[in-house]
């Protein structure tokens, strides 16, 4: 009887906790008119926490008017669903904060420093999609690396 009470209490608690969750709901036009130039990406994930919480939906590029390369990475929080949301809430990971930094490489593979290459924080509500953008520091930069890590680590 006592065990049943514990299980019921736990279930109610989980329900209450997940009931407090904020998730993002979206609506968009189904027939897109944009022409997105997606590029193939190679992802190396060393952090299972980020891998399980954030999905890189795609990376696309465009040329800025001044001849500079413009990139955009679309990231989505995958922590949706009852258990994920409950766990995120219990561990204080809602909203989930990460940091990102974009490094630029020139045609010889040399790192190009820029004041814009800093660790920036970004916050995700479960289910939220965010886009990070950057412009290459000069026209010689053709390659880039997007670094992701948990906030404050």
């Amino acid at each position: 009887m006592k065990k049943l009470a514990y299980v019921l209490s736990a279930a109610v608690l989980c329900g209450v906790v997940s009931g407090c969750q904020n998730t993002v709901n979206t609506a968009e036009n189904a027939e897109k008119s944009m022409r997105v130039n997606y590029i193939a990406s190679k992802n190396v994930s060393t952090d299972s926490f980020i891998r399980d919480r954030i999905a890189i939906e795609g990376i696309n590029k465009a040329n800025a008017p001044g001849g500079l390369l413009m990139i955009q990475a679309t990231l989505r929080s995958t922590r949706t669903g009852f258990w994920s949301e409950t766990w995120s809430s219990m561990t204080g990971a809602n909203p989930y904060k990460i940091e990102y930094k974009i490094d630029w490489l020139d045609e010889n593979g040399m790192y190009v420093d820029t004041p814009a290459s800093i660790w920036k924080e970004i916050e995700f509500i479960p289910g939220e999609t965010k886009r990070i953008q950057a412009v290459s520091p000069n026209a010689r930069c053709r390659d880039f690396v997007i670094n992701l890590k948990e906030y404050g680590k």
Partner: peptide, 19 residues
Amino acid sequence: YQDAAESLINDILRSGELK
């Protein structure tokens, strides 16, 4: 300052107005 500069730098370079 760094965040603001990063944002403004990307914006001004993307605009192409300097070219």
